[in-house]
């Protein structure tokens, strides 16, 4: 699976166009491809409770609408999806 910087826990958003790498202190964009230091940020799309509905839209636990890219680091129910 290919990840972009916006999926990384070291991504610090400045605005919708760009951010900083917390590790390297460099300017990056959210859509840049991730590097070797990449670590996943908890997001709905990485949670076992998430199911896809359509582009950029899914459901949490099959009931509540949510966004795949929503930060879930403060969600009590977040559970990492197993990676193959």
């Amino acid at each position: 699976m290919e990840y972009s910087c916006k999926d990384c826990r070291f991504y610090l958003p400045v605005d919708v166009f760009k951010g900083l790498c917390k590790m390297e202190k460099t300017s990056i964009t959210p859509d840049d491809l991730s590097c070797s230091k990449f670590e996943r940020q908890p997001k709905c799309k990485f949670c076992t409770h998430y199911s896809v509905e359509k582009d950029f839209l899914g459901k949490c636990m099959g009931t509540t609408i949510t966004s795949p890219d929503l930060n879930a680091s403060k969600c009590d129910d977040f559970t990492w999806v197993h990676l193959n």
Partner: peptide, 27 residues
């Protein structure tokens, strides 16, 4: 952010929103 471009949508001629967040915002 006066206009939409790439993965960013302009709202009210001022604010940028990531395109992946638009569907849930509308919902």
């Amino acid at each position: 952010v006066t206009g939409s471009s790439g993965n960013v949508i302009s709202l009210a001629g001022k604010f940028g929103l990531r395109v992946e967040e638009l569907p849930v915002l509308l919902e």
